[in-house]
Design a protein around this nucleic acid. Structure first.
Lengths: 230, 230, 230, 230
DNA sequence: TATGAATGAGCATTCATTCAT
DNA sequence: TATGAATGAATGCTCATTCAT
């Protein structure tokens, strides 16, 4: 089989922004502690209040430090937000879940990777939503988001092309457009399932979500037929 | 055939918010003119600056009237925004495009409704993006957006159920989840194609977009087989 | 005699900054009142506390209006300061004192113009000091100050050249350098006499100041001799 | 001739502030090095950014030490500034230039002392400007500046009185006022020549500056006549 | 001595909203 | 209806200074 799996996760995102390098780096353990506390506090406040509505004072109160300390480590609200988002990005892109190594079945691979995606999304759902909110205002976060999406898409497009070459997928679909469409589909399902305030509301058990997404994904690529058992 | 078409547009959105009833209604022609100018100006400013970044002063400057006049017609920024969004909603839901009445072919119907959807989206792309932005902050716009999405979804779910009943679609897919997933897929494609700052960037000719979306959609529902010609 | 008088005042300063055009112009009488009150209050506070130490809150308190009103009329502290300085500049440059028309005697003319200069300086002493303070920080005020000085100097240089041409002044002095030196001398005397915190402290009656300055000025130019009486 | 020379420099300034005694004195060589580095760095930063705009962090960065070390040696920003200014004062007051001992000619003596003054001013121009800036805000620097000026003035006044007593200078000028006026004149010329951002801009060769200043100075005192050669 | 993290008072600035004219 | 001046709560941010290590 091909070495690339056809799922929506993407381990190869170019990490042009080093997650640990956002803001000023502490030189002592005490500094590190404060900085970490601020990132954790910021995440909590952002998830609770949203980016625009969040106040620096609330973050420093949560982190139990002064406003001055905040500015010791970050240039402003956007910089902590970037740090928080980086943390989440890392989790999304490297979910640390063992891959299914034991199968060659494309459907199984897609299913596994959808499962991993939904799990990672669930952990970072609100933050993903916030990234969208901020990206609508701040161009630099726009690039960040786009970079991530593109990485997913390219990866999936490669996998689709591979399946087509092996005669397993419908030759009539454009690999790039399909990759984009199916990535979007899965991420919308994730939104519906894990964002209580998202555009859609889905109430489905997680495993049913995975199988539904996988069914649609494989159908769309014309992969279903070989698996007569389904 | 069924009376409902299986496309993503939805003419049956409960108009719980009457587009024309947002804000105060003018009693004179002069008032009407001012109010209209304000809505047009607001749309322009919102699309240019985004909701959060837009300033009432810019809107009234654009409309060539005073701040005082603004408050004569609207309660505040959210109310003009609601008025602007209503206008766009109407366009999205009733694109006013002649339906393909002459065919029973489900694929043709899906293609036609995708085509209509993309066209409507293109006209309102930036505003749809803004609605997402605002919905992330303001619960009442959240409901507005959800209501629209749900209407689309329910409509499509009914159509899918119908196709399944007629033996034309894969019985293995859950109609509601599929409707949600496929609506999401199409709207993501539209974002990619028409929002220069969206998460994805698609550069595809409009008609190719329609056919790609339709192919994936029909494949996903298992509709492709009967259409051997494709 | 020449039509230019050899004194340090200069009515021909190019008013490249229209005093009345600094900041936003009011459209109503009420606005005008508020704006005027702010300028007066700002002058008072600036003269009392200095530019750097002055606080916007003190200015608006003095003007009995809100901080918001301040920003209705001025962009910030520098802009009110510019407005205040403009007012003083106008006074310095157009003291509105009747010129001695009845004499051709250069010494009398110099004396008259020194008298006018000292009088104008006395009214604006603290503000002149502040302008120096601000000019040390803000380049745009630097230009403002330089423009004024240069205008004085050029005017005086012309007068000196004229006196030399008429054989009344020492041919050995460079008109421009002398103009600069003598303008500086007079302005330093004015500082010493009218700025309690200036570099020098002079305690001399005003009229003695005028005659001392005039004596030095005319001596320096070699004008004394023809006036045998002195 | 009299033992006092009639130039603007003044070697007798009461050194009420011992230049080396400002701040804490180091007990070790390492401490001395740090302290010296801080003074040098402070001068550089002050001259570059001005007093008000300069930041302690920039000074310590320039001196390659920590903020903590700064406070080991100085009480605050004003104290380093005092130390820096003292350094410059010493240079201004004791230029270390060999006096013209070989002449009794008052004009030559004035010329020599103007020459020395301009040379010293050039080395410390920016710092003199800063002292004015700070004196406008801080009363203790005000005294410092005034003390220096007064010393110059008194010294010159004595010289003028001496010349008058010997029948060499115009009896009609008040020695104190003349001393002040002429000191001011020379210092203004120095500003114009050596401060690119000063109120005046003079572009004259240094030696021409000296001769022009001397010519005006001697003229003003009525000293020129005896020197027929000039 | 040297370090650098922590502090927080203090100030400028924004902008939706009100209301007298 | 239309106007635009007035309002001030709310917030981000700076930077000299302290002090534990």
């Amino acid at each position: 089989m091909s070495t690339t799996s056809a799922g929506p996760t993407d381990p190869e995102l170019p990490s042009f922004v080093d997650p640990a390098r956002v803001g000023t780096q502490p030189a002592t353990a005490r500094g590190q502690r404060t900085r970490d506390a601020l990132i954790a506090a910021a995440r909590k406040v952002f998830e609770r209040d949203g980016y625009v509505e969040s106040r620096l004072v609330d973050i420093v109160a949560e982190a139990r430090c002064s406003i001055g300390s905040f500015y010791t480590w970050f240039e402003g609200k956007d910089e902590v937000f970037a740090a928080v988002v980086q943390q989440a990005q890392n989790d999304m892109l490297h979910p640390g879940i063992a891959r299914v190594e034991s199968t060659d079945d494309p459907v199984e691979i897609i299913a596994a990777s959808n499962r991993a995606y939904f799990a990672a999304y669930e952990r970072n759902a609100r933050l993903n939503q916030l990234l969208d909110q901020v990206a609508a205002v701040d161009p630099s976060f726009r690039s960040l988001r786009r970079a991530r999406s593109q990485a997913f898409v390219e990866r999936n497009a490669r996998a689709i092309r591979d399946l087509q070459a092996r005669g397993l997928a419908d030759q009539g679909v454009d690999p790039t457009v399909a990759a984009m469409a199916l990535s979007g589909m899965v991420s919308r399902l994730a939104q519906g399932a894990f964002l209580p305030d998202g555009p859609y509301v889905i109430e489905v058990a997680p495993e049913d979500l995975v199988s539904a997404a996988t069914r649609l994904w494989t159908n769309a690529l014309g992969l279903t037929q070989p698996q007569l058992g389904r």
